[in-house]
Amino acid sequence: MQISLSVNGTSHELTLDPRTTLLDALRQHLGLTGTKKGCDHGQCGACTVLLDGRRVSACLTLACMVQDQPVTTIEGLGTPEALSPLQQQFLDHDGFQCGYCTPGQICSATAMLKEIAAGWPSHASADLTGPIALTHAEIAERMSGNLCRCAAYANIVDAIRQAAGAQGDAA
């Protein structure tokens, strides 16, 4: 079927089998291999992209279902010459080892910080309606959909806190 996708501000016309996931469309048909395939079942977060600014698992999204929604991938967040704040902090804090989960981590964290700015509570929030402190517990809970096999979690949390401008060393 004919499918039009808007990715990182560019429109693409593709002929795809309806079974094609957004993940496979990005990697196999558009050559955007920054988005990674880990489990392909929504459990690891490596395929996280932004759909209309919200983080989703591209492996559990059919490309044909998101034709009217702008997609942002890791390639759309920054470039080697102009890194996004989170990309820079992942470098500065060694927020990765093998790097396979990193695009998903950065896309996820980019949207997660917007969720906090919008006042969305989490399972770790003591109060559903109060202000949200960017503690380790809040970040760990909110990033639990992104697994890191190298277990670079400590540095990932530091990178996210730094990018968000968090002060001090809240537990």
């Binding site: 929504g42 977060g45 996280t48 759909l51 919200r54 983080r55 989703v56 698992s57 559990l60 999204t61 996820s108 949207a111 997660m112 969720e115 509570p121 989490s122 399972h123 929030s125 559903l128 309606t129 909110r142 990033m143 639990s144 959909g145 992104n146």
Partner: peptide
């Protein structure tokens, strides 16, 4: 929902991941 049905917010936030809850 947060104000009047906090049980529902809590149950939803206890499930899945940020990505999956968006979907």
């Amino acid at each position: 929902i947060r104000r009047d049905y906090p049980l529902l917010s809590r149950a939803l936030l206890a499930g899945a991941s940020g990505q999956l809850r968006n979907m």
